[in-house]
Amino acid sequence: MLDIINVSLLLMMIVTALAIARLRSLFAVAMLTGLFSLLAACVFVLLDAVDVAFTEAAVGAGMTTVLFLATLGLTRSREKVTPKDRAIPAMLVAGSCGAVLIYALSGLPEFGAADTPVHQHPITEKYLVTSIDETHIPNTVTTLLASYRGFDTLGEVVVIFTAGMVVLMLLGRCAREREPDQDARAKD
């Protein structure tokens, strides 16, 4: 039953991705990316990753869509017709990459199996049993994120901070003051 829901959600994701690749109206594409993220969040819930689903729903369906729409509002919302000369090579490269991937992925252990290296590694015991004894915190994802992999998360926070500062440098008030004629142009 779970597999049927999973397969249909994944099929919907693929159809949405195809529509994203085909459509030329970028506003529609931005809304479809929101839908794509929401479907991904549903799949993550079914795959037991509730924290990830939460993040994907908040970030993908909310934040990313707003950012794409804001960019389209600042630029233009219609994609020009791309000449077809790139389509064939792109399809060849994407197709061969996909073929290699499917060949490689078929070497992975079966989906959901318990005897995979991921689940048999001793660290799994440490994360799922010892961490609860050590911290009394039920959500092991939080324990791992903030305590066991604290260095990693510190790095991620610094990356987010840096990205925010870069956007401010590119689009912020300081960047605009150097081009005084732009304010006048924006008003008319």
């Binding site: 707003v66 689009l171 924006a186």
Partner: peptide, 21 residues
Amino acid sequence: TVASVMMLLFFAFAGRGKVKA
């Protein structure tokens, strides 16, 4: 950090005036 960066991103994009083509 995440909340303030996300709000800053929105303000940066929304506050930028559109340039006439």
